[in-house]
Structures are given as C-alpha cells and as structure tokens.
Design a protein around this nucleic acid. Structure first.
Lengths: 172, 172, 172, 172
DNA sequence: ATTTAAGCGAGACGGTACGTCTCGTCTTGAA
DNA sequence: TTCAAGACGAGACGTACCGTCTCGCTTAAAT
C-alpha cells in the first residue's frame, strides 16, 4: 500500500512490487494471481478490522454507528485510493471481480445484514424498503461519492440516510 | 463499440481500433487522447438521446419517469459494459476521470436537478433529504448495481426509492 | 562483436545487445530470429571479405594460398571466439544449424571447390582423395584446432596438408 | 541419455533430470557441476569401452581398424547427439571445456598415439606428417562430419585417409 | 496540365511490463 | 542424519502495446 500510494495504482507493476519487497517476481506470482489481488488482501484485512456491528439498542443507533464507521474508512485517502483501484480492476477483469465481491463487497453487505436482521427480530425495522434495498442505498451512496463525485462522506449524509431509512418514532 | 463487445474493454487496444477502422494509429491519436475517450464519445451520445425530463405534473411522477428511463438504459447489457469500463478508466486515469465527469456524470446530475428544482418551485419537494443527497441516492444505487452487484435495475427498486424520496401525501 | 568479446557468448543476451545498440528489443527480434543469427551476419560478412581464390598457376599454389588465408582468419582470437559460439549454437538449435550451414560452412566449401575444380580442369588434381574428402580434411583440421585443441593454425600444418593433398611432381 | 534423447540437449534441464531420476535437485548438484558433466560421464564411459588398439601387425592395419571402430561409434545417432551437445557446451563453458578435453578428447588422442608410436618403433611410420598432424586429420574429419556436414562416416573416407596417411609400400 | 502540399495508411522505432522459465541456493519435514 | 520436495532471489526469455516517428501514395488545389 505504501508503494501504491507513491506511484498510484496505474503505475503499480508486479515488477515494482517485487523489487520493493526485495523478492523475485515469481514469488509474487506464486501467491497472488494479479497485482489487484495483492492490494485486495491488504485492503480487506484493513477494512475488516474497522467496522463493528455492536448492538446500540435500536436500529437507528446501529445504523448510525455503521454509517459513521464506514464513512470514516471511506474518507481515509489512502484506503479510498485502493478501493477505487480495486473496483476499477473488478470491471476490467471479471475473475478478479468475483474474488473482490466475495472477499470484500459481500462481507460488507453481510455486516450490514447483521444490523437489519437484528432490527427485524426486534420489530424495529420499517416495512419498506427491504433489507436488500437498504444495502443498495447505503453502499451505493458510499461508492458513488468515492468513485464519481470524490466528495467526502459527511455526517450530514449520514443524518439524511438515517432519517430516511430509520425514521424517528415520535412524529409518526 | 462492436469491437469492444467482441474483445472486451480490457482486450481493446488503440492498435486494434485502428486496424478495425482500416486506419493508421496516428489518425486515432489525432482525434482522441485515449481508447477510453473513443468509447466515451460513443457512450455519451447514446445516453444523451434517452432520458428525458418531461413534466409529469408532480415530483413523484417526474422522479418515477426519470428512474424508469435511467434503469432501462442501465439494463442494456452493451451500454452497461461500456459504462463499467469508463468508470473503471476514470479511476485509473485522473485526467480522463475529469473528462468523464464533465461529459457524462455531471450531465446526468443536471438532468435530475431539472426535476428537483421544478419540484422545489412547485413546493412539492420534501425538506429532507436535499437535492444533492437525492442525486447521490438515485445515482449511487444505479452505479452500485451496475458495478458491484451486477443485478438488474428493477421496478421494485424504483418503487422503494420513490416511496422514500417522494412519499405519497395521503397516509401522512 | 564488440559486446560478445566483452561478456563472452554465454553472457550475451538479446536484452544486452539491444541496450548496447540503443534500440528496443523488438527491433532485434524484428530482424534476427536469435542472438546467434546476429553474430552470424557479422561473422559471415567478415569472413567473406577475406579468403580469395585467385589463380596461382597450380593446385599446390592455390591450395597453399587458401590454407594460409583461412588459417589467418582462424587465428584471429575475436573471430575464432565467434565461430566457436556459432558452431556450438548450431548443435543446440537445429534450425539455426541449417542457416549456419547455408550462410557460412557451405560457402567456405564452395570457395575451396573453385580451387579443386580448376585443378581438375587443369589435369592437376590427384585421383585420390576426391574433392569432398579434400574439403573434409581441410576444414576438419581447422575446426578441430579451433574447437577441440584450441591450438593455433600453423604454417607447419599447412605444409603437411599441402604435401599430402598436392604432392610435388618431382619425386614421383 | 534416455531423457536427453526425448527432449534434446537444449530442452534438458537439471530440474528435469532430477525429476526423472526421482531425486531432489540438490542431489544432482552435489555430484555434478552442470548438466553437461552428467552427460559427459555417461558418454565417456560408453566410448571408452569401444575402440581398441589391438596390434594388427602393420600401421596400415592398425590405422584402418582404429578408423573403422571410431566411425562406427560416430555413426550411432544417439551417441553422436550427445557428442555434439558436449562439444557445444565445451565452447560455451570454458571450465567444462577443460574437463571435456581431459576426460574425452585427450583420451582419444592417446589411443591413436598408441598406434602411431607402435608404428614408429616398428619403422613403419612415414616421415610426414608427424603424429600430431595425423591426429588432427583423423579426429578433424570425424568431428567435422559429426558437427558440420552431419554426413555419415563412410568406409570410403577411411580408405582415403589410410591411403594418404599410410600409403601402400608397393607402388613406391 | 503540371506541380505542390496536405492527409493518411502502414508500420518501424525506443521503451516498458507482461507472465514464464530455469538457474543455483536455501529451508522444511518425514523417514 | 539424510534427502525429496519445493520455495526462494535473480534475471533472461519472447510477446504485446504504448505513443512517436518516418515513409510513400493519394488526392485536390494552385499554378
């Protein structure tokens, strides 16, 4: 990731990774099928450590915590750079795309599913939208800002989403 | 686009494009700075023709029409493939990213802004979320499905979004 | 040939040749199928320039002149080194062997054949051995010294061969 | 030698030899410094067994027997292939060249020297050419045919050489 | 009607990274 | 303790494209 930050993903080469690691090219090829997989392993480990799904007593609280933790991650410039590169590579190389989905995207969806399932069990979850759409909205906005607008993920956005997806009980 | 469909974007080369066009490489370089820009010109033209922003009398109606038209586009396999490639390239090549944003992404946001502005003028627009967040949600979900889950953009998703962003007046 | 002299044929690489020539690898591959062919072209040109087949009036005189010129060539350390490498490569790569035979070995035999044919026409050529065997002996001894014993090709050897293959008329 | 016959000397690797022998690479390296030395050991053993230097009563007879035995060996396709490879390797790797000379080439010269020495003691040896040149001619023609023309070593060639080097007494 | 010049196809060029191969050394684990 | 199995650092291989650069041929305008 240090090297990626220095030269950018486009300038990253297997040859360069090997040289920086003080290692033969073959050793890289022995363990990872492409430079994207090298980064994926680094990125996945890093992301996994972060976002927790501790119980905050309510869907609203859980969702807000999840969003805040996720946004914090997405706002780390170095990690965001890696995520952009991985998502790009996933479009260009179908097989890597499958691995990326399995190792990263699906795991993040599963983490969110823990929260929505808990809410459903608690009777806390609105009828609509269903869990899948919630995930599409939550992750869609994150990725859209990371990939397309490159604007930071703000607390205001989190407020808006919590307001939409887990409306306060009172006003009803 | 025919060639891109045959060999995939990853397999696309300027050399190949020139050969297919029966043209010297230099001629391609004379007119476009990269292979992505060649596709961008093809893709942008195509997408512009589609989505209209005709007035349907209500924010709800306008939004539903916009979503349906956009989803239809995003569900065209060949166009989706090109969009995936362009978004990928935009991550790898910053300068192309700027051109892509200007020539495509911002224009789609502008189209949606026509609708939300009209709703605001009409007094039809909910207080929250604001126009920018609406755009993030609308385009975020589209791109997320195109890039990440690769699932089709369904009428159900449109229903959910319309329900959230432009709730029916009645039940309130 | 300068580079070959510096690093030895075993240390010669296409990569190195290209670098020394200030040229891309592909340019070497475009014109020669292997590093041996590069050297062959240089060596063949060099060798062709040397050995003449001028008429000296007698088979004895022609043969002695041919041997002396050939030995002089074979005693040039740099050229001998190249010839060793080419003969070696010819054993390892059959296809190069064919090219080597056509471009070098056969041409040297043809040069000698000019001399023996002239002698035959003149009635100067002994009955035995025939022209083919003469060539085998002449070139065999040269190559054997170059490849196997690495001893210089001396005037004494030339004396011996001339004595055997073109005996003086007198003593008969 | 079986493996060498299958893949050719160029395709022979230490890795392959070890695999075929069901042995670790290190074990090969422990006993031989290169793949050529492995073959040399096999080849030298084989060639030593053949050519004898039994006394046939005359230089002429001894020489003819030596040539015939040597030619028979050189006409064995599999052995010739190995000899070609060893001679090639000797050109590329100087250190192996020294070992090859000592273990093979010099021993064959020594064998011929037994014959010429015997002839000299017997007063049977012509004044010219001397023993060294005889060896150069005998082995030169063999190697030249094996390496360069790849033509078989025929009885006719033996006749020519015997006629030149050990002329019949009568006609004088 | 002849000359001139621009535009273009073709593709050679200097580079760079690819993914593969084999080298000779080093490490590991089972017998 | 030995040794097969094979990971390792190293570096050349031959290929694919990159973006730049000549080349001639065509074609249309200017003479």
């Amino acid at each position: 990731m240090t090297l990626a930050a220095e030269v950018g993903y486009a300038g990253l080469t297997i040859e360069g990774i090997a040289a920086r690691a003080g290692v033969g090219k073959q050793t890289i090829y022995r363990w990872w099928p492409s430079k994207a997989d090298v980064l994926l392993e680094a990125g996945a480990v890093k992301a996994d450590r972060y976002v927790s799904v501790t119980d905050h007593g309510s869907y609203r609280g859980d969702l807000r915590a999840f969003l805040e933790a996720s946004y914090e991650l997405g706002n780390l410039p170095q990690l965001a750079e890696v995520l952009r590169a991985l998502m790009a590579e996933a479009q260009l190389d179908t097989e890597f795309g499958d691995r990326f989905r399995a190792a990263f995207l699906d795991r993040r969806r599963d983490a969110l599913a823990v929260i929505t399932s808990r809410a459903r069990d608690r009777g806390d979850l609105p009828d609509r939208p269903d869990m899948a759409t919630v995930a599409d909205i939550v992750f869609g906005t994150i990725w859209y800002r990371v990939l397309a607008t490159r604007e930071p993920l703000t607390a205001g956005l989190a407020d808006d989403l919590v307001g939409l997806l887990a409306p306060a009980e009172g006003p009803r």
